[in-house]
Amino acid sequence: MFLASTSFWLDQVVNGLTIGSMYALIALGYTMVYGVLKMINFAHGEVFMLGSYAGFGVLVAFGGESIAGPMVVLAIAAAFVGAALASASVSVVLERVAYRPLRNAPRLAPLITAIGASIFLQFLVLDVTGAKASFYPRIFPSGSIEVGAFRITYLQLFLVGCSVAMMLFLYIVVQRTAVGRSIRAVAENRTAASLMGIDVDRAIVTTFVLGAAMAGVAGVLWGLFFLQVRGSMGFLPGIKAFTAAVLGGIGSIPGAMVGGYFLGLAETVGREALSAIPGLNFPNEWRDVIAFSLLVLVLLFRPTGIFGELVSRRA
């Protein structure tokens, strides 16, 4: 084990980047909503789950397992759009019903409704589906690229590429457009933003929509990779992505991305590295223990996260 081959470690890195991409995409929603409302939207994991279901529905409508050839590209693109729309719609309703009425309430109140909304959505889907999993059609071309000891499957490459493209898109929207500028203004000073003529409610809804669209796409990627959807699937990725956002420094967009990859690599490369120490052994089931131990350690020793200075300067 200790002398595992180079290819073994490179595989772990690729696995870490794959899972980390999805954590990062979901984490963006947590961090952006926190940025404007100083609130943790704990229902975000369920927004991700509903996106995954919506994408599943689109793929089934396109023919499920029988999708082939160029239709695969079209079907996956449609699944992305469907998932982003579904997740965004759910988020808009959540914001309107569960969070906006509590905008000026003590911060604990919206946190509790968020947990309530999370449980509600999860059990609603579990009830409707009879708690059974559905299976994503296995339509993505198998095969992989190998360069020496380095190997990445087409699916992993697609997954990382899509995630990076989405993050780049989000970065441009937030940093380079008038919409992004108004979101950043609202995040910093809501009153002053309203005096600029910014419709604060709309900016907040836009923030939810952007975060939810990222989570919806992540839901489709998750389905394509793990090939399963079920009502409870949002819980762990949701809380892991929250961990990633805290790792990176909650409120910071680059922090959420870095935190996502950091957590993904910690669960894979980090876990194997610990196992390589003689006398220690952390099989794959330990990945959650490692993730949440990291959360506890960060909260203890660096509660502001990796990009912490930025956040505290913003506060």
Binding site: E188, N189, T191, A192, A193, R314
Partner: peptide
């Protein structure tokens, strides 16, 4: 507004 309301991070 009072206190100017500048967006310091922008």
């Amino acid at each position: 507004p009072e206190g100017r309301g500048i967006f310091g991070t922008l």
